[in-house]
Amino acid sequence: MGSLWFLAGIDPNKVTKSVSHGLTGFPEIYDYSHFGWIGVQVFFFISGFVIAFSAQRASYFEFFVSWVIRLGPCVWICASITLFFLFTVDGGFQLIQRYLRAILFIPFGAMIDA
């Protein structure tokens, strides 16, 4: 939970303000959640082992298909929700490009959910 609040924009330096276009900001809870980044690091450490073990038992194509089946729906739903809310604030062609990069898993350029 702490990492979510940290990334949502509670950093008093407003590092993440540009990511959310200034829509979020909770500096009053920074003192309770500024260690949230540790949870993110632990998650990536553990998931690295899980991915390595699952990749050992599958071909490249099988691993890719299982990856898309597992992560695709979450990305498509979250990106669509973000598109809806950001479009009400700041619509435009650039927003559609960022959305397409996210749902098509294009690994370069800005995506809708930074």
Score class of each variant (00 low, 15 high):
residue 2 G to E: 05
residue 2 G to K: 12
residue 3 S to V: 08
residue 5 W to D: 01
residue 5 W to I: 05
residue 6 F to L: 15
residue 7 L to E: 00
residue 8 A to K: 12
residue 12 P to C: 07
residue 13 N to G: 08
residue 13 N to Y: 06
residue 16 T to F: 14
residue 18 S to T: 11
residue 21 H to R: 12
residue 22 G to I: 10
residue 22 G to Y: 06
residue 22 G to C: 06
residue 23 L to D: 08
residue 26 F to H: 11
residue 27 P to N: 00
residue 27 P to S: 05
residue 30 Y to F: 15
residue 31 D to R: 14
residue 32 Y to K: 14
residue 34 H to N: 15
residue 41 Q to R: 07
residue 43 F to P: 01
residue 43 F to M: 12
residue 44 F to M: 12
residue 45 F to I: 00
residue 45 F to L: 07
residue 53 F to T: 00
residue 54 S to Q: 12
residue 55 A to G: 15
residue 55 A to F: 09
residue 55 A to E: 00
residue 55 A to L: 11
residue 55 A to N: 09
residue 59 S to F: 01
residue 61 F to D: 04
residue 63 F to W: 09
residue 63 F to H: 13
residue 63 F to D: 03
residue 66 S to T: 05
residue 67 W to A: 14
residue 68 V to L: 15
residue 70 R to K: 13
residue 71 L to N: 13
residue 72 G to V: 02
residue 73 P to S: 08
residue 76 W to G: 03
residue 77 I to Y: 08
residue 78 C to Q: 10
residue 80 S to E: 00
residue 81 I to P: 00
residue 82 T to V: 13
residue 87 F to P: 06
residue 90 D to Q: 15
residue 91 G to M: 02
residue 91 G to V: 01
residue 91 G to Q: 01
residue 92 G to C: 02
residue 92 G to P: 06
residue 99 Y to V: 13
residue 99 Y to H: 03
residue 103 I to R: 05
residue 103 I to V: 15
residue 104 L to P: 03
residue 104 L to N: 09
residue 105 F to N: 01
residue 107 P to S: 03
residue 107 P to M: 03
residue 109 G to M: 06
residue 109 G to F: 07
residue 112 I to E: 02
residue 113 D to S: 11
residue 113 D to F: 10
residue 114 A to Q: 12
residue 114 A to V: 06
